[in-house]
């Protein structure tokens, strides 16, 4: 391995800042936060009552409109699954003659039982394996998929953003290469703001232990470009459509809420 020239580089920076070049500076206080701040914000974000969560969902829907992001409230897993089946039957394949679907391995997605439901239409469903180490076969499947189904760690109402970490069974390409990306989340995944997100990431013990992972992605709507005469076109490289199915909590169901059309 070649030397990475770190020392001479950092020494030059220290000298430029007027510090002795050879003395390593440490300043742990620069990384410290007011004690309890993150926990307090996270606590508020994770323990919202029913009406607060409704307000968040409304805000998320509002922010989604200009992004061309489709947000649908669903009553339960069956509802979500039938919407996905309907979308799979309607969508035209973009890259190949036949359609196929790729999905994450994720407790919520597994419950959708898409393999079974779509087999009637001869649409194969490929779920990412939990223990695979060979990267190419799954990328091959995902690259020409009609639909990719994922969940998300958080949905941020402030900007209509989905937050996805990367884990075994939850590869990045499922939300990237298919023509349509569907994310199934629960209403509890909704938070208000990026400020809340970073507070949770830094105070929730499981999040702290896991870290941001090798790739944490924010997705706000479908892929888009305005590079030709500033004309907005959706579907530049990533998905041309993104749909978020929000599982409403059973106790939060009220009439009319789940009746949104696709």
């Amino acid at each position: 391995m070649n030397p990475n020239h770190r020392n001479e580089f950092i020494q030059r920076v220290r000298a430029a800042l007027g510090h002795p070049a050879h003395i390593c500076r440490k300043a742990p206080e620069l990384f410290r936060h007011p004690p309890g701040l993150h926990a307090a914000i996270a606590d508020q974000a994770l323990n919202r009552n029913r009406s607060e969560r409704h307000i968040l969902l409304d805000r998320f829907r509002q922010e989604a409109i200009p992004l061309n992001l489709n947000v649908i409230g669903v009553e339960g897993i069956d509802d979500a699954a039938s919407i996905i089946v309907r979308l799979a039957s309607q969508k035209e394949p973009e890259w190949e003659r036949t359609k196929h679907v790729v999905t994450w391995a994720h407790p919520l997605i597994d419950k959708l039982d898409l393999s079974e439901r779509l087999s009637a239409m001869n649409i194969p469903v490929h779920a990412a394996g939990m223990n695979d180490t060979d990267r190419d076969p799954f990328i091959q499947l995902a690259q020409h998929a009609c639909i990719g189904v994922t969940s998300a760690d958080y949905a941020i109402a402030e900007s209509g953003t989905l937050v996805l970490k990367t884990r075994p069974g939850q590869p990045r390409c499922v939300s990237l290469t298919p023509s349509t990306h569907i994310a199934v989340i629960t209403q509890n995944d909704l938070i208000d703001s990026f400020r809340e997100m970073v507070a949770i990431l830094q105070s929730d013990p499981a999040e702290v232990a896991e870290g941001l992972t090798s790739c944490m992605t924010f997705i706000s709507g479908p892929s888009k470009t305005a590079d030709i005469e500033a004309c907005m076109v959706h579907g530049a490289h990533g998905p041309r459509e993104v749909c978020v199915l929000v599982l409403l909590m059973p106790d939060q169901l009220t009439k009319g809420q789940s009746s949104d059309a696709v």
Partner: peptide
Amino acid sequence: QKMAGYVSYIGGPRQPGHMDGPDAFHLVI
């Protein structure tokens, strides 16, 4: 925009069990 369409926080190459992402990640400062 309130947030760019896509933002990726990249911290290194793919980890064991990850099915995509690069085998090697290099940062040039």
